[in-house]
Structure formats: C-alpha cells, structure tokens
Computed example of a mutant assay.
Amino acid sequence: MCGDSRDSPGRRDSTEAAAVREFWGRVGVPGLIDVHTHFMPERVLRKVWAYFDAFGADDGGDGGGVAWPISYRHDEERRVELLGEFGVRAFTSMLYPHKAGMARWLNDWAADFARRTPGCLRTATFFPEPGVEAYVREAVETGARVFKAHVQVGGYDPNDALLDPVWGLLADAGTPVVTHCGSGPEPGRHTGPGPIARLLARHPRLRLVVAHMGMPEYAEFLALAERYEEVRLDTTMAFTDFSERLMPFPRAESERLVALGERIVLGSDFPNIPYAYVHQLEALERLGLGDAWLRGVLHGNAARLFGLGSDPGE
C-alpha cells in the first residue's frame, strides 16, 4: 500500500509510475483515460479526506471498522504531475455539492482548473435547486465535457422535478454524466438501481456512467446497461482487494462484463484510494477477460465516448 508523501516520495513515485507505464505498455494502449479522478477546491477536498479518515473508525468495538487511508495526500500540483507520470492522457475533476448554492461555484472552479491543467476533461456538476437548468446549460455551452452527480452525498432523488430539464438537456447534448448511484460504500435515501431505472425510463438516451460499477448492486446496474445502449459503467475501486473484502463482485456475472466490454471505462477514484494506483489495473487484469477487453477499458472506450484523438485535449 502506498504511504503518505513523506515516505521516500521520490523513490516510491518513480517506482510506481514505472509499474503503471509498464502495465499499459504491455497491454498495448498509448496511455490511460481515467474518467473518475477527483480535483476540487482545497477546502472541499480536505472535508472529503476527513470523511475517509473517519471511515470505519467507529466499529462498535467489534473490530468491524475498515481503515481508508488516502494514498495520494499530495498538493494539487503534485497530484496532477503524478497522473502525467503514470501516463494518464485524459482525466476528470469529479466534484459535487452536498447542498444548494454550491454547484455554480464548483463549476466555476472546475472550468478554471481545466483551463490551466493539460489533459483535464472539463467537469461540472449540479444540484436540484432553482436555477439549475440555467447553470447546467451555461456549462455545456461553454465547454463542459462531463458532469458528476453524487446521489449519495447530495441526498437527492435523481427524479426530482427540478432536475428533469437538466437530464433532458444533457441527453440532447450527449454529455456523459458520471453518477454515484449505487449503495456503496454507504447507502443513501435515493441510492440503488430503482431511482436510476425510473430516470432512464424517461431519458433513455442519457449517457449515464454508473460509478463504481454500481457496487454493491452490480447485477442490477449491469442489467440497466444491457437495456439502455448509452449507459456505461466505470471500474472505480471495483474488483480491488479492498472492495472485494467489503462488496465482492459476483463472479457469475463475469460473462456480462465481456458482453458489455465496449461500455466499461476506467475509473480509479484517484487520489482518494487506500492502495496504489497500479492495483486498480492489476485487479482488472486478473479478471482474465483478455488484453482486447483491457485495451477497451483502459483507453479505447473512453476515447470514443469523449471523441479523443491522438491529442487528448482535442
């Protein structure tokens, strides 16, 4: 497991970057496209890290707590550099509000971050509140390439009437929406496949990317991807040792991963992961689904989704 940045950072980072680059080079892709990485204003990120620092700390004295150390607790500049050293050609700045009045400010920050950060796919977000359609439309028209919706943290129903025009707008624009809608690591009032199934019934062309493969409701979200051709799933934390201990993927569903191979995209949750980045890649390889499947997941599928050419900024 990767320690914090004080543990021989230069040596560790160099060794890890070499391992990541060796992996994707051996598989046969020109680099990685990671659709689920987090960059956000510093004070917001600190609160996110505090949540993970406390994760599992209160175990009721029965030893059931699960530690979630942040492997990449670096400053923003170093985190961006590391993705470059890993060979991540394009990535996102997943950010999300937990209450009304935050989303527009977060979108402004993300637009500035993308302008000053090569390789970043400009990311935006939203919340069910008055004015949401206007600021989402503004973000789309000024260049947002992907949105993040976090049903668990936001505590909202994706079918809230305030969001209906937003989903329609994003479906019409063909803009992907990475959506944390599964019930892991902790369930919310509106998590699970039911609310998303109702949403897709109304907006079947929505390019919804189910974060974390929908864990732990893997089978149900795979079924939604089978039903709706624009639905994708990202691999974020799925299949890793950490997640397999808590929310194991049912191996009986492996054939469905093959059938949906062109609609599964790489996500990592960098920097908020409790293990080394390369472990996500190794976890995908040990599924045994072959290099062609891996090439699509690590690069090709997201390249098509975002229309990326030889230059990921295109």
Rank of each mutant, 00 (worst) to 15 (best):
G3V: 10
S8T: 08
P9T: 01
R11N: 06
E16H: 15
A17E: 02
A19T: 06
W24D: 04
G25Q: 14
V27E: 06
I33H: 03
H36D: 09
T37P: 09
H38Y: 03
L45F: 11
L45V: 05
D53A: 13
D53T: 01
D53E: 14
F55K: 10
A57E: 15
D59S: 05
G60T: 10
D62L: 11
G63S: 09
G64V: 03
H74W: 15
D75M: 00
R78I: 01
R78C: 02
L82Y: 03
L83Q: 15
L83G: 12
G87I: 04
V88I: 13
F91R: 04
L95E: 08
L95A: 12
H98Y: 11
H98W: 10
M102K: 09
M102H: 08
R104N: 01
R104Y: 05
W105V: 11
A111V: 06
D112G: 14
F113D: 00
R122I: 01
T123P: 12
T125W: 08
P130Q: 13
P130H: 12
P130R: 14
V132D: 04
V132M: 08
E133H: 11
E138V: 01
F147T: 08
A149G: 13
A149I: 04
A149S: 15
G154C: 09
D157V: 07
D157N: 15
P158Q: 11
P158D: 10
N159F: 02
L162W: 00
D164N: 09
G168I: 00
L169I: 05
L170Q: 09
G174N: 07
T175P: 04
P176I: 11
V177G: 07
C181V: 15
G182P: 07
G182R: 03
G184W: 10
P187Y: 00
T191L: 06
R198A: 15
L199A: 02
L206N: 03
L206Y: 02
R207P: 00
V210A: 03
M213Y: 10
M213P: 02
M215V: 00
E217P: 03
E220H: 08
F221S: 08
L224A: 05
E230Q: 13
R232V: 00
L233P: 00
D234K: 05
D234P: 05
D234V: 01
F239T: 08
F239K: 10
M247Y: 14
M247L: 12
M247N: 10
P250K: 04
R251W: 06
S254Q: 13
E255H: 14
V258P: 03
A259F: 00
V265A: 14
V265F: 04
L266A: 03
G267E: 06
G267Y: 06
G267D: 05
P271L: 04
I273P: 02
Y277A: 01
V278G: 00
H279P: 00
E282D: 01
R286H: 14
G288I: 09
G290H: 07
A292L: 13
L294P: 14
V297W: 13
L298Q: 10
N301I: 02
N301S: 10
A303Q: 11
L308F: 09
L308Y: 03
L308T: 12
L308S: 07
S310K: 06
S310G: 13
